[in-house]
Structures are given as structure tokens and as C-alpha cells.
Design a protein around this nucleic acid. Sequence first.
DNA 1: GATAAAGGTTTACGCTGCGTCAAGGTCAAG
DNA 2: CTTGACCTTGACGCAGCGTAAACCTTTATC
Lengths: 247, 247
Amino acid sequence: MDWSIQEIARHAGTTSRALRHYGDIGLLAPSRIGSNGYRYYDEQALVKLQRILLLRDLGLGLPAIAGVLTASTEPVAALGTHLDWLRRERDRLARQIAAVEETLKALKGGEQLMAEKMFDGFDHTQYQEEVEERWGKEAYATSDAWWRSMSDAEKAKWQERVSALGSDWAAAAESGIAPDSDGAQTLAERHVQWLSSIPGTPGAVKEYVTGLGDMYVADERFAANYGGVAGAEFVRDALAVYADRHL
Amino acid sequence: MDWSIQEIARHAGTTSRALRHYGDIGLLAPSRIGSNGYRYYDEQALVKLQRILLLRDLGLGLPAIAGVLTASTEPVAALGTHLDWLRRERDRLARQIAAVEETLKALKGGEQLMAEKMFDGFDHTQYQEEVEERWGKEAYATSDAWWRSMSDAEKAKWQERVSALGSDWAAAAESGIAPDSDGAQTLAERHVQWLSSIPGTPGAVKEYVTGLGDMYVADERFAANYGGVAGAEFVRDALAVYADRHL
DNA sequence: GATAAAGGTTTACGCTGCGTCAAGGTCAAG
DNA sequence: CTTGACCTTGACGCAGCGTAAACCTTTATC
């Protein structure tokens, strides 16, 4: 009482190719192989195949399925792990959808929306003098050209990154951890990397970084981005430690 | 004013490997290649790279990004298409999560829950005589062994499929479409495939399929699964047409 | 008994986006 | 001259099969 590969494939709602694949990876061997090389499957194999397909429908990977089938893994454990992964994936997708929606909205809304929010409040024209004075005209021109070349979508995304960094700093400052703690230093590293990604700036240069830290504290327009003066002080201290250690 | 591959990679927050990859696929070429073969990137390249990374962060595929960069695709269109895909993926994940959760619940809940709901109301012991009479003792024994060998999770999944099929039939019947319409015939095919997946049954045999159709109408315990007698009649007619055409 | 239609076999590339060796040049520093 | 850091070009690996390619077997038909 057995079936050919096509027959069992139709029975179970899959393809002969998949069955050969399962055979290749040792997940489900034919119950019998004819002298002509044909694969034949019996009822036991069909039952096993249905278990495989069921678990696969739930999204489990073939190795995980193999674990369950050989009883080397508890089904509950395997599905539990899998469920965690599914939920993380769902959350990731949800965030990505939100980001794309925002980007699209910005794209359709027009350009000038972004102009004021540049660099998260760091308007190019508004701060032009300051930047030129501190870092030279060249730096400003380069940075400006860079910003202008970005599309709205890119500007929006940039904004997102900037504000994410800002709120992370604010949260860290409020949590009461030390500026030289691992958590704060991780943020400092992100901050420096972010700075380095702006063309026309000195990037990861000690004086530049510490100088900026001072500026954040001194100028409340900047401080606002990090949860006020207290937050800015935290940022400054963390950056100073980081610069001292790595730059 | 240009950077080495590592430098620009750190600037932009990616890896040198990715940059080589982008070069290989023609997405972003180095602005200059030294006599030693080293890749160098200038500011224009950095800007382009940042656009690439931004779009990639939104989940766009590299080919789609290439389309946007070469201005052969509207960013709004590309992101719109992408958004649709993201949403479908999210929905698929949500359904899968629900399925896994249900399966887990069933697994943890114990075994006897399923025993009565077998075959969506088609309890083995309850209908044993009927099955034996119609299809012989062997068929029943085979089918029974098959069912018993399944885990709760598998039984649950099976239930799900059965009830999905039933409600699809009921909906089709109520929608007023003809039994020989494409929609109904698609369901008939699913139905036959489902039947074929039960070991010990004749499977896709004309007499078996049409006979079952008659049984669904004659026995209201079965008819209930398809939205009552009217639904069962619809199923019977659709199956008859299908059997006539394909079996 | 010849022939054609189904169905079977193995072998192997393709897809996504790089990570990760492998094997070996280049370059600045000690 | 030697390290060590950084660069190069291949090329495999991953998940799960889809999809030819090239070639037998079995089955149905004439």
C-alpha cells in the first residue's frame, strides 16, 4: 500500500520537488526505493509528511521540524521559541511600515516642511554664522550641499535618527546612570558615528566632539534636543569621557 | 577629498563588504580606483550611499533602490508598492502568530479536547459504523490509526483546515454563484485534495466523491458543516461537476 | 510492437544581501 | 625588515525549494 512521489505529493498538498528535498536533507526518506530508482511512500511516511507540512505552515524552519520529528525537541518549546521570533518580526515590520508611511507623507507633503526641522532644529540658515565661525566657511558649504542633495524622504529619515538619538540621550540622563557607564558610552559612540556621517565636519576629532558637547550645554537651542540643560550636561560629560578614551 | 573604503563605511554606518557588493551590482561605484586597485569614494558617493542606506533601512530591495537612484522610478511609486508588500507581510505574520498561539494552547490544554471535534464533528467512534459500512473495515482502521498518530497540534491544525473549507463552502453557497463557476470549482478541487489527504479513503475517485456529496445532503450532521442543507446541496452539485470534469 | 504522453531520476543554477574565510598584495610605523 | 592594519579578488553559505536540462520507465494508444 504505497504511492509514487507525485501521488503522495498531491495527497499532502505539496510538490514532488519538495519531497526530494526532504529526502536530500534527511527529513523524510521514502519508505521504499524501486530498482528503477523510483521513490515510494507508505502511510507512515504520509503521516510524517503531514506533520512536517503542518509545522511548516506554522512557519517553522526545516531543521526545527527535524528536531521535533526526532523527538529531540519538545514541540511546545520549539513553537514557543518560534512564536517569539514571529512576534519580533511582526514588530519590526510594524516599525518599518510606520517609517515608510511617514516618509511617504513627507514626500507627498512637499519640501519646505523639512527645511525648518533640519538637523532636528539645527536650521542651516539660522545657524549658518555660528557654524562658519566655528568650523569655517568650507565646512558649512559642504554640509549645506550635502543636505540640499537629500530628498524629502531622506531628510525625514535623517530626522528620525536624530530625534531617536536625542530621546535616547534624554532617557539615559534621566535614568541616573553615570556618564562613563557602558550605556552612556554606547550612546556616545553612536553620537560620534552620527557626527562623522555629516560631510564637511571634522568627524571623530577629539576637539570637535568635546567642543560640541560644550556647545550643547551653552546653547539651550541645542540643549532642548537632549532633555534640557541637565540632559545636555550629561551628553557633554559622556562625550568627554568617550573622546578621552577613544579619540 | 576622498576616503578609503573602510573610512566611508564607518562614516555611513555600513561595512566595506557591502560597499564592494554595491559596486559589484552596479549600485554604487567608487569615484576613483587607485593604481593599486584600492577603491576611493568622494562626497558625491557618500551622499549617494546615504540615500541607498536610507532606502534600505525602509526595507526596499537593492534593485528597487537602483531604480530610484537612476530616476527611472518615482520614489513615491516605489515606496507605495513597497508599503503594500510590507502590509501583506505583516498580515501574514499576524495570521501565523494566531495559528501558532492556538496550536500552543491546544498543545498545552491536553488531548481529549480534540477527540470529539475530529473531522470537524465527524467523530470516529460516532460514525464508525457508517464508515465501515460504506468503505469497509480496512478503510476505517487505516483512517483511525492515522488520526490517532497525530499530535494535538496537528489535530488542531487539521480542524482549522476543515472548518476553513466548510465556511468557504457556506460563503460560496450563500453568495449565489453557480456550482460550475470557477469559484465553486476551485473549492471543489480543494475539497477533493483534502479528501485525498485522508489515508484509508479512496481519495480522488469519482464514485467516492459524488457519493460523499450525496451523503452531505442526506445527513444533516454533515450538512451542518456547510451551512445547512442548502449549502450541502451546493457542495454536492459542485463536487459532481468537478468529478465529471476531472475524475 | 512502435510510439507518444506521463511521470521518474539526478544534477545544478537561481534567488537576497551580504557574512565570512582564504590567499595574498600595499602601506605606514617601529 | 618586520609587524599590523587595510586592501584586493574569488568563492562558499544561507532557506527552501522552483525551474530547466538531459535522460530513463511505465502506461496508454494505434
